[in-house]
C-alpha cells in the first residue's frame, strides 16, 4: 500500500516535470516570437503604383562571387569586380575574361581600353587582357575610394573618407580636388555619413556627383565649380530617404539618371532635368534590409543591377523603349 503511494507520487512528479519542460519548450522562444509591437513599418512605401514601373526584369546572371563589389558597362561589355577578381562578360552573360587582382577591389570603371580598379585606396590601370598598365600613387591614410569616372583626359575619384572628389590626368597625375563647397556659407560641401559616394560622367561630358546627405545630384565643372544641382527628399517614389541616398547612380545613353537607394531598396529613373520619371525596380524586388545595388546601363537602356544580397546581376529592360525627346 505504502509502495503504491510512492509510485503514484513519483508518476505525478514525472508528469509535472514533463509538463514544465514541454511548457518551457513551446513558450516564448525566438522562433515563436510574438509580432514586434514596436515594428518600424515602411510597408506602405514598398508598394509602388504599377503605372510608375517602367521596366521589367528580363534575366539575371549568377556571377560566382562571394562578395561582389561593383559593376561597370563599356562598349556593351559588363565588368564586374568582386572577391579578388575582375570578370568581363557579354550582354548575354557569357564569360569573356576573368583575371585575378592583387587585392580586394573597391570599385571599377572602364573607359576606352583602360580598366580602372581601386584596391587598398590605390588606382590600378589594366588593359582588357588583364595586364597591369599603370599603378598610381596610393591615396592618403583616411581615404576611402567609392567611385571612379573617366573621360578622354581626366579621371575623377570619389573619396568618401576625405569627402572630396579628386581629379587626375589619365596618366594618374594629381590635378586638383574639391569638396563641393561653392563658396563660403553657400553650399555645405559633400555630406557623407556612410561610404556611399558616387559620381559619373554623362553623354555630354558633364561630371555629376551625389551629395548623399542632401539627397542631391550636383553638376561640377572639371575644376570643381558647382554648375547645377537637383535634389528630392522623401520616402515617396520620387524622393530619396535616409542619410545616404542615392547610394549609386549611372546614366542612360540619353543622359537620364538611374539611381539606386539603400534603406528602401529601389531603382528609379530621372529625366536629365532631375524630374522623377519612373521606377525600374520596386523595393519588393529586393531582400528586406538589403544593400543598394550598384547600377550600370547598356546602349539599349537596359539597366544592370548588381544585387549584393543575391549575388546576381539582374537585368531590367524598358517596357516601352522610349528615348527622351529634345527638351526633356
Amino acid at each position: 500500500m505504502k509502495n503504491k503511494g510512492i509510485i503514484i507520487f513519483l508518476l505525478i512528479m514525472a508528469a509535472v516535470i514533463i509538463a514544465v519542460i514541454v511548457g518551457d519548450y513551446v513558450s516564448d522562444r525566438p522562433n515563436r516570437s510574438k509580432p514586434n509591437p514596436f515594428a518600424y513599418d515602411v510597408k506602405e512605401f514598398k508598394t509602388v503604383d504599377p503605372e510608375l514601373i517602367h521596366y521589367k526584369e528580363s534575366k539575371n546572371f549568377r556571377i560566382g562571387f562571394e562578395k561582389p563589389v561593383a559593376i561597370a558597362i563599356h562598349d556593351d561589355k559588363i565588368y564586374v569586380a568582386g572577391d579578388n577578381n575582375l570578370k568581363c562578360i557579354d550582354l548575354s552573360g557569357a564569360l569573356l575574361h576573368d583575371f585575378t587582382l592583387p587585392g580586394k577591389p573597391q570599385t571599377v570603371e572602364v573607359f576606352n581600353q583602360n580598366i580602372y580598379i581601386a584596391i587598398n585606396n590605390q588606382i590600378l590601370v589594366y588593359d582588357n587582357g588583364g595586364n597591369l598598365l599603370n599603378e598610381w600613387e596610393p591615396m592618403g591614410e583616411n581615404s576611402l575610394i567609392t567611385a571612379i569616372a573617366a573621360t578622354e583626359n581626366d579621371v575623377f575619384v570619389a573619396d568618401a573618407g576625405k569627402r572630396k572628389v579628386v581629379r587626375y590626368s589619365s596618366d594618374g597625375e594629381f590635378l586638383t580636388e574639391f569638396d563641393g563647397k561653392a563658396e563660403e556659407g553657400v553650399l555645405h560641401g559633400f555630406i557623407i555619413p556612410s561610404p556611399c559616394f558616387d559620381l559619373d560622367i554623362n553623354d555630354v561630358n558633364e561630371l555629376w556627383v551625389v551629395n548623399p546627405g542632401l539627397h542631391a545630384l550636383e553638376n561640377y565643372t572639371f575644376d570643381g565649380n558647382l554648375r547645377a544641382h537637383w535634389k528630392n527628399t522623401g520616402m515617396r517614389p520620387e524622393g530619396f530617404s535616409g542619410c545616404c541616398n542615392p547610394s549609386h547612380f549611372t546614366f542612360l545613353d540619353d543622359g537620364r539618371f538611374v539611381t539606386s537607394e539603400k534603406g528602401l531598396v529601389r531603382i528609379k529613373t530621372y529625366k536629365r532635368s532631375g524630374e522623377f520619371e519612373g521606377v525600374v525596380a520596386a523595393p519588393t524586388k529586393f531582400t528586406d534590409e538589403g544593400r543598394a545595388p550598384d547600377v550600370a546601363a547598356d546602349s539599349q537602356n537596359n539597366i544592370y543591377a548588381l544585387d549584393f544580397d543575391k549575388k546576381l546581376i539582374r537585368v531590367f529592360e524598358p517596357k516601352n523603349n522610349t528615348r527622351l525627346q529634345p527638351g526633356d
Partner: peptide, 15 residues
C-alpha cells in the same frame, strides 16, 4: 559615427 542628418531615419517617422 552619426551623420547629424536633418532627415534622420531614427528620429522621424517614415511618413
Amino acid at each position: 559615427l552619426c551623420g547629424y542628418c536633418d532627415l534622420c531615419g531614427g528620429y522621424l517617422k517614415p511618413d
